[in-house]
């Protein structure tokens, strides 16, 4: 029993961390229409920077500053934001598929850099070593995991509420207008280039937070964690849940991560021994099929985006009901 609960805590922690990243992508794609094909670069920038700043001292590469944990997380977010700003300034003039190709390239370059720059972050061996905060009080076991889960859930709620307010505000209105018709938005006095960059950086900072939590949860990050498959998983979560709907983004994360975990377990248990090497590939195919299937048969996702409406005649309730309908 305790084994099951313990596993559920572990599962929920990872899923909640990924949900934060999916919410970041939802701001970019769901609300602004920015096709970020390199989610993992910003997730990874946050992960590496957080672990470099907050990790224990390392002999052969950068890092081990043992910064206070929240500061390390903020540093990770800053790193992701800086990378996004740089990439954004260079590529945000590109539209849809071209932006996707450019950002995908950035992510592959990021992974290659991390794999080869041993002096920077341990190269292919990865970056390990993180002294868990409050370890003396909480120990290493179940209690610690429970407290960490509570911390991650709190951050998920904070991000959820922040983004919820943001997309219901006039800022969110600008994002949607630019997503729908950039020329028309510009003719109404809005600056698409500035707004796109702001949304891109903000979404990436949120992905960086997810990366920082991920790296410190495992006390380890390596190039294997920033492969393109993670970008596709995060995209699948958003598409299944419903682009433009934050509740959908979180729901999609739990469904896809549950399916991923369950399929991994089932394959390792039931696939013949000689096929075990290839079960990962089967999972990749599944993710691809889910993305394509959803786009063909239910492109709006399980929880579609909702219109912001007036609820005419009831000014006091307009804002709230509009957002919850």
């Amino acid at each position: 029993m305790i084994g099951v609960i313990s596993y559920l805590v572990f599962f929920t922690t990872v899923a909640s961390i990924l949900a934060i990243a999916v919410l970041g992508l939802n701001l970019q794609w769901g609300n602004t229409g920015l096709f970020n094909g390199g989610v993992v670069a910003f997730f990874g920038a946050g992960a590496y920077a957080t672990l470099i700043l907050g990790g224990t001292p390392q002999a052969d590469h950068l890092g081990g500053f043992e910064l206070f944990y929240p500061l390390a997380l903020l540093g990770g977010m800053l790193a992701a934001g800086l990378l996004a700003w740089l990439v954004g300034v260079l590529t945000l003039r590109l539209r849809h598929d071209y932006l996707a190709i450019a950002t995908f390239g950035v992510a592959v370059a990021f992974e290659t850099l991390m794999r080869n720059a041993e002096g920077l972050a341990g190269g292919a061996k990865g970056l390990r070593g993180f002294e868990r905060p409050l370890r003396e009080a909480l120990g290493d076991g179940f209690t610690y995991n429970l407290v960490f889960l509570a911390f991650v859930l709190t951050l998920l709620i904070v991000v959820y509420v922040f983004l919820g307010r943001l997309i219901r505000s006039p800022f969110g209105r600008m994002l949607r207008a630019i997503r729908e018709d950039e020329v028309a938005a510009k003719s109404l006095g809005k600056s698409p280039s500035r707004v796109r960059l702001t949304a891109f950086v903000t979404g990436s900072v949120i992905m960086g937070l997810a990366g920082g939590l991920y790296a410190t949860f495992y006390a380890f990050i390596s190039p294997q964690d920033v492969l393109p498959i993670l970008t596709f998983q995060i995209w699948a979560m958003l598409i299944v849940g419903g682009a433009g709907n934050n509740a959908g983004a979180v729901l999609g994360t739990f469904i896809i991560w549950g399916g991923w975990t369950a399929s991994g377990w089932a394959l390792s248990r039931f696939a013949p021994i000689e096929a075990q090497l290839y079960t990962g590939t089967v999972q990749f195919i599944l993710i691809g099929m889910i993305i394509v299937g959803m786009l063909m048969w239910r492109p709006q996702g399980l929880l579609p985006e909702r219109l912001v409406v007036s609820q005419s005649g009831k000014p006091e309730n307009k804002h709230k009901t509009g957002s919850r309908r």
Partner: peptide, 29 residues
């Protein structure tokens, strides 16, 4: 015409005023 299709008619119109406080990232917070 270039309507913002997946926005309500009301939202289409509410977009236009210049320099809305909530257009800034931190305005709503």
């Amino acid at each position: 015409p270039r309507p913002f299709g997946r926005m309500s008619v009301l939202e289409n119109v509410m977009l236009a005023p210049m320099n809305q406080l909530g257009e800034r990232l931190w305005g709503p917070i």
